[in-house]
Amino acid sequence: MTTALLRDVTLRDGLQLTGKTLDVATRVDLARTLLRAGVPELEIGSMARPDLVPPMAGSLDIVAALTPEELDRCWIWVATPRHVEKAVAAGAKNVQYCFSASDAHNKANIGRLTEDSVAAMPTAIDIVKEAGGRIQLCIATSFTCPFDGAVDPDRVRGIVADPRTAGADDVVLADTLGQAHPGQVRDLFATAPVGDRRPVFHGHDTWGMGVANALAAIDGGAQVVDGALAGLGGCPFAPGASGNTASEDLLFATRPDYLTPQVLAELVRAGEVLLAELGEASRSKAAQGARSEAKAFDWVIG
């Protein structure tokens, strides 16, 4: 099994369902903490309407606060070419163009049919490429839809193969509800016609399969897996969705070269500070283990 990169999505998907909002300065500080720790890539915000998703207000202010070098490693969520225009104008370099495989969820989340989102993607690609950036094709509800149930894998493969999505740099397949099992995830990644685009897995841990599904995705060819500190997050338009797979758990499982006990401790502490600010509970098993009494184990925080 090849080790995949972690993209931490705390600042976007991780904050979406929290009852409290964080100011821009706090979010910028957290982004820099994650980047300094060695996390290769981050999601830092969303172009979703702040009246619908209040924790995402100020996302473009985060873009403005980061350096070009930092922004090279950061992504912002978009759903329309207009979103892309605004993000790029603010200085964003990398955008995640997201829509759902199921029409019912796409209408609830974005307000249009899946076909409408696919049809608009070439315009979004052109805007990003003209600015010298990167764009991801992100397919939410790649496994199950909260309204329609199971999603036909051929529908997902068809979107990936559609010529209108071919200009994407990456393909993100999202287990939005966290209901997939490892066999499903491995099979979809092994058979999705991504070509030379980078395959990415976005998982949730609703049924306790977050890490197992991420490892299965890697086994099927995924090169990047998404996680959020302490397992925060979820989609506000997907009933039944719970937190993301915890970044701490994914790192402990995949052991990238930059991960040392000291780095893990720094990330656990960052997650604890964030949880205290938000009034949320941790869902990370690795963070719990790091605070255990097994002092002879190098990964336990002293």
Rank of each mutant, 00 (worst) to 15 (best):
T26Y: 11
N94H: 05
V24S: 09
L30I: 11
S59R: 01
K93M: 04
A25E: 14
V28F: 05
H83C: 10
L60M: 12
R27W: 14
E41G: 00
P50E: 14
L17F: 03
I44G: 08
V63K: 01
G58Q: 10
L30T: 10
T18W: 07
G38D: 06
S102H: 05
L34T: 09
M56P: 01
N94K: 06
F99V: 06
A89F: 04
P68K: 03
Q96P: 00
A65Q: 12
L22I: 10
H105Q: 11
M47D: 06
K20E: 13
A48V: 15
G38C: 09
P40R: 11
A89V: 07
E41T: 12
W75S: 00
T33I: 12
E85S: 05
A25P: 02
H105I: 05
V63C: 06
S59I: 03
G58D: 10
C98P: 00
K86P: 00
E70Q: 11
G58N: 08
W75Y: 12
L60P: 06
T21W: 03
K86A: 13
P55W: 01
Q16L: 12
N106V: 07
D61P: 12
P81T: 03
L30Q: 14
P40W: 06
L30S: 12
L52D: 13
K20L: 12
R36I: 01
T21P: 07
S102G: 12
P50T: 14
A87N: 02
R36G: 06
D23S: 14
R49H: 15
R27Q: 07
A104G: 03
A90W: 01
V63S: 03
I62L: 15
N109L: 05
Q16F: 13
Q16G: 10
W77F: 14
R36W: 00
A89D: 13
H83A: 03
A87V: 04
L17K: 14
T21I: 09
A65Y: 09
D61L: 14
P55T: 09
V24C: 10
A48Q: 13
S59E: 03
S46L: 13
E85G: 06
R73T: 00
L66N: 04
W75A: 00
V84P: 02
A57Q: 14
G38E: 10
L66Q: 06
N94Q: 06
Q16R: 13
E43F: 12
E69D: 13
I44D: 09
L71K: 00
A104F: 02
P40D: 08
P40A: 12
A65C: 11
D23A: 15
T26W: 12
I76M: 11
V39P: 07
R36L: 05
A25Y: 07
T18A: 13
V53H: 06
A90K: 03
V78L: 03
A101L: 04
T33R: 15
N109W: 08
R49L: 15
L35C: 11
V63Q: 04
E85C: 00
N94F: 03
T21Q: 15
